[in-house]
Each structure stands twice: as structure tokens, then as C-alpha cells.
């Protein structure tokens, strides 16, 4: 079964991937390079001067604010990751192993996609009538006498941001997990059971190891989506949560494009390092 790769085949393959490669080159690599160049420009306080300087990076690494912002961002990434992983895994497990009929599986899977029928901003704003001071939950809380005052932590808080992350990003964890789980050979589970493995042991020694590529892909999604999010922190966090992306927005509002670009480059590097680490630990290609 040795396949001889002729130059013609190789040529054809190159041709096939060229549209996507070109699009990525122009619309992803190009802008990123421009941001990198911008990050070395000088910012005088009002003006951007095209002049090579390391000042933006020196300032970034010596400011105590950078650490605070990254801690906040990593905290948001970490908590969201844990919750979406548990939820995503459970949901995928239920769909794949507990349901028998394929139609029900697909129907319920599609149900999980319903929130994506509308724009992300609307998905977030839709929380306001639920969580607000005069929202449904607070009306209930006051009506039942659980609290005399409306619960303020529900909206414009970290809690609200997490809620939105979990609502939206669980699917990104669930979908790849669903995919890998569906491919698990049922014979392996039968064999484990025949050999006397308990349910927990099957889960721990058979299913989870086989799910690793799905977990890895889901993690890459969740990490990069949370680390780059600005909308939820702004709309549901009331801009009171200081993440890396918020600090970039503040700098951009004040026309400080070079320092803001430097912040962006470092954030990109951090996210790429995390993604690279995941890729080293798990062979994602296995799933493909």
C-alpha cells in the first residue's frame, strides 16, 4: 500500500490548498505582520512615529498593570475551561453513549446550536433582562423574600461574564468531544467490561484517553476565544473587569496604537504558547 507521490500529485495538492493559503496569507498573516511592525513604532504621547523602538515592550514588561491584567485573563480562561470541559464532556457523553437513536442524537445536538442562530452581541444583551436589577431573577428573588434588595452581582460582574462564556463556549468544547467519542470503537468498551473494569475505570482508562484529541481541540477554541474576548467583558462586565483585551481597547481609544499593538503581540505569543503546549501533549492529528 505504498503510495508513490509523484510531482504531479504534489502539484495538484499545492493547487488545492492555495486558495485557503492565499486568503490566510492576505487576511491573517499580513495584518499580524503589520501589527508587529506597529508595535515597534514610537508613540510620543499624541502621535505615532514610524521609528524602531523597544520602548513599548519595555514599558509593557515593567508595568505592574501587565501582571494584573494577565492574571485576570488567565483566571477567566482557567475557570471557563474547567466548566466548559465538565459540561461539554458530560453532554457529549450523554449524546454519544446514553442515547441510542441517531435521530434523537442529532436533534439534541442541533438544539445546542440554537443560540448560534443569532449574533453574539444579541446573545449577550439578552442576558440583561434576566440578570438586571429589575430582571426576572431579581423579581423572583424579591417576590420569594430570599433577599429584600436586588442581587447586584448578577449583572455587570465577573459572574455575568462567566455565564455568557459558558453559555457560548461549551459548544466549542462539546462538538470536538462528540466527534471523537462517536468514533470510539464500542468493542473496546465491551472488552474492558469483560475484563471486569468498573464504569469509572472504563471512563478513566478507556474513554478519556481516547478523547484527548477532542479535549485538545476544544481547549484551543476556548482558550483563544476567552483570551481575545472584549464584547462580554464590556457589555456584561460593565467594563469593570480589567483583562488584557480591555487594556488594549483603552489604549486604542486614546490613539495609542503602538503600545496597544505591543500588548496584542504579547497576547498572541502567550496564546500561541498555550496552543503549542497542547499540541505537544496531544496528537491532534489523530482525530483528523
Amino acid at each position: 500500500m505504498v503510495r508513490v507521490i509523484t510531482s504531479a500529485l504534489r502539484y495538484r495538492a499545492a493547487l488545492q490548498i492555495s486558495p485557503l493559503s492565499l486568503a490566510l496569507l492576505f487576511f491573517l498573516v499580513g495584518p499580524v505582520i503589520m501589527i508587529m511592525i506597529m508595535s515597534f513604532y514610537e508613540f510620543t504621547g499624541f502621535m505615532t512615529v514610524p521609528d524602531a523602538t523597544l520602548e513599548n515592550y519595555i514599558e509593557l514588561f515593567t508595568s505592574s498593570l501587565t501582571g494584573v491584567n494577565y492574571l485576570q485573563t488567565l483566571k477567566m480562561v482557567g475557570i471557563t475551561w474547567v466548566v466548559t470541559l465538565v459540561l461539554g464532556f458530560t453532554l457529549a457523553y450523554f449524546l454519544v453513549f446514553d442515547l441510542v437513536e441517531l435521530r434523537t442524537k442529532l436533534l439534541l445536538f442541533l438544539l445546542c446550536v440554537v443560540p448560534f442562530w443569532t449574533s453574539s452581541v444579541i446573545r449577550m444583551v439578552a442576558w440583561v433582562p434576566f440578570l438586571g436589577k429589575e430582571g426576572i431573577i431579581n423579581k423572583f428573588v424579591i417576590w420569594t423574600g430570599i433577599s429584600a434588595e436586588p442581587l447586584q452581582f448578577l449583572l455587570f460582574s465577573e459572574f455575568a461574564v462567566f455565564l455568557s462564556y459558558i453559555q457560548i463556549f461549551t459548544l466549542f468544547m462539546m462538538a470536538p468531544l462528540f466527534n471523537v467519542m462517536a468514533r470510539i470503537n464500542r468493542d473496546l468498551i465491551e472488552a474492558a467490561r469483560d475484563n471486569g473494569a468498573s464504569g469509572i475505570q472504563i471512563l478513566w482508562h478507556v474513554i478519556i484517553p481516547l478523547c484527548k484529541p477532542g479535549i485538545a481541540i476544544g481547549t484551543i477554541f476556548v482558550v483563544s476565544l476567552v483570551a481575545s474576548d472584549f464584547a462580554a467583558v464590556s457589555l456584561l462586565g460593565g467594563q469593570r473587569v480589567g483583562t488584557v483585551s480591555i487594556s488594549m481597547i483603552i489604549q486604542m481609544n486614546m490613539a495609542q496604537y503602538p503600545p496597544s499593538s505591543a500588548t496584542g503581540v504579547i497576547l498572541l505569543v502567550v496564546v500561541l504558547l498555550i496552543v503549542g503546549g497542547i499540541m505537544r501533549m496531544v496528537d491532534v492529528r489523530k482525530q483528523l
Binding site: F43, G45, F46, S63, L65, V68, N69, Q72, Q239, R240, V241, G242, I246, S247, I250, Q251, M254, Q256
Partner: peptide
């Protein structure tokens, strides 16, 4: 307005947001 201390102000404001 845009203040002369624009850069300093922006950094301190970001500290307020992160506090």
C-alpha cells in the same frame, strides 16, 4: 479634552479598570 499627560492618564485609567 485631550490632556498633555495623555499617556500617563491612560495607564492610570487602565489601573482603575483593573482594580
Amino acid at each position: 479634552s485631550t490632556m498633555d499627560e495623555n499617556k500617563y492618564l491612560t495607564r492610570r485609567w487602565a489601573e482603575f479598570i483593573a482594580a
